[in-house]
Design a protein around this nucleic acid. Structure first.
Length: 108
DNA sequence: CACATGACTGGAT
DNA sequence: AATCCAGCCATGT
């Protein structure tokens, strides 16, 4: 994670997210070392659209599907999550604390 | 080179 | 407890 694009690092972590799990922007940012730059994570994911990046598994710290509107179709993100067994209600992930996959805790 | 923007977060009011 | 404000870093103009 030096000369590699910040995006590439984000992609790598997001790809490692287990199916049926979710993570928060802050968790990824913290894992990358750029703690506090959660905005960059989200922005990086913005470029992940159209790639093999399961960006739908990344939500904000409240478990809210903040980036659903960037998927082309707002309903796409929720459907993908529900398809993986994640319960989503009102753009919000249910049992978020339970499904939360923290790279720092899981990978470290 | 400086300002503005962005899928966020945490502390302050 | 809910809302507001400021900080955070990378990319684009």
């Amino acid at each position: 994670m030096d000369k590699t694009s910040f995006f590439q690092d984000v992609y790598d972590v997001v790809r490692l997210i287990p199916k049926g799990r979710v993570t928060s922007y802050g968790a990824i940012a913290n894992y990358l070392g750029t703690k506090g730059s959660s905005r960059m994570v989200g922005w990086a994911l913005n470029s992940s659209i159209g790639k093999d990046i399961p960006a739908h598994r990344v939500v904000n710290r409240s478990g809210l599907l903040t980036g659903k509107k960037h998927f082309g179709d707002p309903n796409r993100m929720q459907e993908l999550l529900e398809k993986e067994g994640i319960k989503v209600k009102n753009n919000q992930v249910q049992d978020f604390d339970k499904l939360l996959w923290d790279p720092i805790k899981e990978l470290f």
